[in-house]
């Protein structure tokens, strides 16, 4: 069914009440930001946000409407290049989740309270280190510290 558009496109707007906490817009302040671990090492970029109902009633793949408050459950990173070009979303199993409880600060980067070695999101970097870089002579140490 084709939807009709409103005539003027301009909806009457009232002033937004002042909010009691810090205000963040997803695209402006969160998405595509670099995620750093507790030592300042890069972990990933923030590709998406997992939302859940406050009471935890909803399944991760189920939509939630405005009848229940919704909070950010986790930061998501994963293979989004293809879906951003062609549309759709990666299956839930391909996302790496970083719990919101680990987020320490949000600025030009998102800082975590954990080390990147402890996160599933960096498995590819660890695998590359162990199986490719580590087999190159001299690949096990920092050249400046040798």
């Amino acid at each position: 069914m084709r939807r009709r558009r409103t005539g003027s496109r301009d909806v009457p707007r009232g002033p937004e009440p002042r909010q009691p906490g810090r205000v963040l817009d997803a695209r402006l302040h969160l998405l595509d930001r670099q995620v750093l671990d507790v030592d300042g090492m890069p972990v990933c970029t923030l590709d998406d946000l997992e939302l859940e109902a406050v009471d935890g009633r909803s399944a991760p793949d189920e939509p939630i409407d405005g009848s229940v408050p919704v909070v950010v459950a986790a930061l998501l990173t994963g293979p989004v290049l293809g879906t951003r070009v062609f549309g759709g979303r990666p299956p839930a199993s391909r996302w790496h989740r970083l719990s919101w409880a680990h987020v320490v600060d949000i600025g030009t980067a998102v800082r975590l309270s954990v080390r990147s070695d402890d996160l599933d999101a960096t498995w590819l970097e660890r695998w590359t280190h162990d199986h490719i870089i580590g087999r190159i002579p001299g690949g096990h140490h920092d050249p400046e510290s040798s």
């Binding site: 695209r27 408050p69 600060d105």
Partner: peptide
């Protein structure tokens, strides 16, 4: 009524949810 008003261009969150380990929960405002 089915009239199109526009598109969602961003989601606004407010950090005023229940206290978590470091930051308050980010509520979808």
């Amino acid at each position: 009524a089915g009239a199109q008003l526009g598109w969602v261009v961003d989601l606004r969150f407010v950090l005023d949810g229940a206290p978590d380990a470091y930051l308050a929960r980010a509520r979808l405002h």
